[in-house]
């Protein structure tokens, strides 16, 4: 059976800079995986390259639900069932969230409307629907808006980039529980984070560790525990001499 996401020797460069150096990763339908890595390891790059953002050149293969994404534009990838929740969602002045939601509505109109109805109640989005997308929202509100859009688009594969960053403990728990509640047999989820704390509130099927553009370890939740005690350095040893990661506040999408 096809997986929700299947990456084979996926490499990504930005100009001359090779950031991902051959990533193999499979997220079967119904599973929740976590990708962990220090700042600058290439996590957001992975998201953008999957989404087909301009400027990234990639090789290897990417399949979402068995559909090869090669050559597809950003919107076509979205319609093939890939959803990205952004680490830094951009502000779109003058475009209320409900206008965007209306534009997102596809063929399954009734089901879509039901999801909007249900999720906006559940996530308390009523006050946000008439406000411009991401404009003036706090970090937590932006994440909530991303989760809302995820839930209403009903993708086959959802990639959530640092959905826990910048949130206080309660908000992290809330997000984690929400993600858990979205789990279903026809959806694959990949949570991207550089902290293990969100894992306290969810039960991932697998945890992968990305360091310097490569997956250096995959396993069960014990991988996260090991990370907690030993940090990422253990996997860096054989990478001595490579440029080190950016400090926390400088990382991210450029």
């Amino acid at each position: 059976m096809n997986a929700a996401l299947q990456l084979d020797r996926f490499t990504v460069s930005l100009g001359d800079l090779e950031i991902l150096k051959g990533v193999d990763l499979t997220v079967p339908f119904g599973e929740l995986h976590v990708l962990m890595g220090p700042n600058g390891s290439g996590k957001s790059t992975l998201c953008h390259a999957l989404m087909g953002k301009n400027g990234y050149t990639s090789s290897g293969s990417v399949l979402v639900g068995g559909t090869d994404l090669a050559g597809l534009g950003v919107d076509q990838r979205a319609r093939a069932g890939l959803f990205q929740a952004f680490q830094y969602p951009v502000e779109i002045p003058g475009v209320p969230l409900d206008a965007l939601i209306t534009e997102m509505r596809s063929n399954d109109e009734d089901a879509f409307d039901e999801r909007v109805e249900q999720m906006s109640g559940r996530l308390g989005m009523d006050n946000f629907l008439s406000r411009s997308v991401n404009v003036g929202l706090s970090g937590g509100e932006k994440k909530r808006s991303e989760m809302f859009q995820l839930a209403v688009s009903a993708p086959r594969m959802a990639v959530l980039d640092e959905i826990d960053s910048g949130l206080d403990v309660d908000a992290v728990r809330e997000v984690a529980e929400l993600v858990e509640s979205l789990r279903k047999p026809d959806l694959g989820i990949l949570i991207i984070t550089h902290y293990s704390r969100i894992l306290r509130y969810m039960r991932p099927d697998r945890v992968h560790v990305l360091v310097d553009g490569r997956i250096v370890r995959s396993g069960g939740s014990e991988v996260a525990e090991q990370l907690d005690s030993d940090g990422y350095e253990q996997w860096r040893r054989d990478n001595v001499g490579r440029p080190s990661a950016l400090p926390d506040d400088l990382s991210g999408e450029f």
Partner: peptide, 13 residues
């Protein structure tokens, strides 16, 4: 960036 965000939600260019 706005174009990218909107297209990632399934809107064509």
């Amino acid at each position: 960036e706005q174009r990218y965000y909107l297209m990632s939600r399934g809107l064509d260019r």
